[in-house]
Design a protein around this nucleic acid. Structure first.
Lengths: 238, 238
DNA sequence: ATTATCTATAGATCTATAGATAATGC
DNA sequence: ATTATCTATAGATCTATAGATAATGC
């Protein structure tokens, strides 16, 4: 019996629910997985409740609506990459090395993430005001990668590409691995001759994509080996 | 009143509906757009009917269920790229040039496509048997790109990468542009300094991505200009 | 007392069908 | 006659709330 949209009779606003903790986090985790595999619209609160080991109404104790669960997921999606980039920038080093490290890390993390970033982005695009933070952070990530590319062009190590277009496609390519890398049990695209060994490890994919991207961007491709060595050294220090 | 799942009382099987024609095609077009922006699960038959200028029950005259509409979309998704690749292969030329042409074309087409390929893939992954054709064609596309890369390695023009991993990431990167390239009116990620001119044309993006990909793959990057010229020449002949 | 859970259920909405009616083609 | 559409509606299911009850903390 949803009354006038937006009314909130059942749950006392004076007593806000905790923002984390076992049951709440579990709901977010379960919902992420379901949204990723079935999509947001096809996932019901019942399913989320069931897989969280709660009754549907208990889920409403933590979240006022399905949209609110989505909001919790969307809120943290960009943080992973942004935090990592901040750490990489703090480490210092040439732009090319920073880029290599970011891409390699991003791909590995995204392969393992339970969200579907692309699904999340689409849903966030549908309600720009509501998910303003998502778009702000997303724009920030874009801007920072753009700056990195621009810095690499300025110091002469990268070719003179359009830094913004490069940033957009770097991040998009990173996220694209989610579209074919799926955890065991779901569909994989396999090799022609050897359908049994169709899987690549996230590390392998990250290494490949970082190498390809820098291989295209570096002015002198002969410096690629050095860039990778330097990235390895800094990553090992973490 | 959906009776036993799978029963089909209301629509006489002896009188199958046409497989194309104005109202049917319009439904597919409208549904593609809605699935892409809202997702499959959040799109209702009512919405599809309304935007097609039909009553909901008229939609059921052409499609037995929402899944059947999806099936019609899924069925043709891979054909565009497969047909294009066949044409490119018929034209002949070196592997590197064929790859360049395929990527550039793919990106341009995908930017303009009303489907969300990634959404479609996810839904197809959920019902592998039902969408067996989709997966067969998708695998075929993958195999053919893999062969192209392998041929380029064999003739010495491309670096010795893993051809299958390369094929997977080439196709994924192509599709990734859909995640940030949206038609006017929806959200765009914009430039830091000039939020007004945030848009790239599909041709520009296709050119960029084809250049980046080949720039990373070609053994001698100095041959890139020649590859592009040859691709231009052959594309102009179409 | 407060916090967390449950059962029961209201009301909305959704998919799909039944059956009537209008439009078209022979 | 056949093809294409409509109105009306059945039954399922979904979101969200009300209100009861159990568990926890002071």
């Amino acid at each position: 019996m949803p009354p006038a949209k937006g009314s909130r009779i059942g749950r006392p606003r004076s007593n806000p629910r905790p923002l984390d903790g076992p049951p709440r986090d579990e709901v977010v985790k379960v919902a992420s997985r379901l949204f990723a595999s079935q999509g947001f619209g096809s996932t019901t609160m019942r399913q989320i409740a069931e897989q969280s080991g709660l009754s549907p109404s208990s889920v409403y104790y933590y979240f006022g609506s399905k949209d609110e669960i989505l909001e919790a997921i969307v809120a943290e999606v960009n943080r992973v990459s942004l935090d990592r980039l901040a750490a990489i920038n703090a480490d210092g080093g040439e732009p090319a090395v920073r880029l290599f490290r970011l891409i390699r890390f991003d791909v590995e993390v995204l392969c393992r993430l339970p969200y579907d970033i692309n699904e999340i982005s689409r849903l966030a695009a549908l309600q720009e005001e509501r998910f303003a933070t998502f778009w702000k952070e997303r724009q920030q990530l874009n801007d920072e990668v753009e700056e990195l590319v621009a810095a690499g062009i300025a110091d002469g190590s990268l070719l003179e590409v359009d830094p913004r277009l490069a940033a957009l496609s770097i991040l998009a390519d990173d996220e694209a691995v989610q579209n074919w890398f799926r955890p065991v049990g779901e569909h994989h695209l396999r090799g022609r001759d050897d359908p049994a060994t169709g899987d690549y490890a996230p590390e392998e994919i990250g290494e490949f994509l970082a190498t390809q991207t820098l291989g295209a961007l570096l002015r002198h491709r002969s410096s690629l080996a050095r860039v990778r060595r330097e990235a390895d050294r800094l990553d090992a220090a973490d």
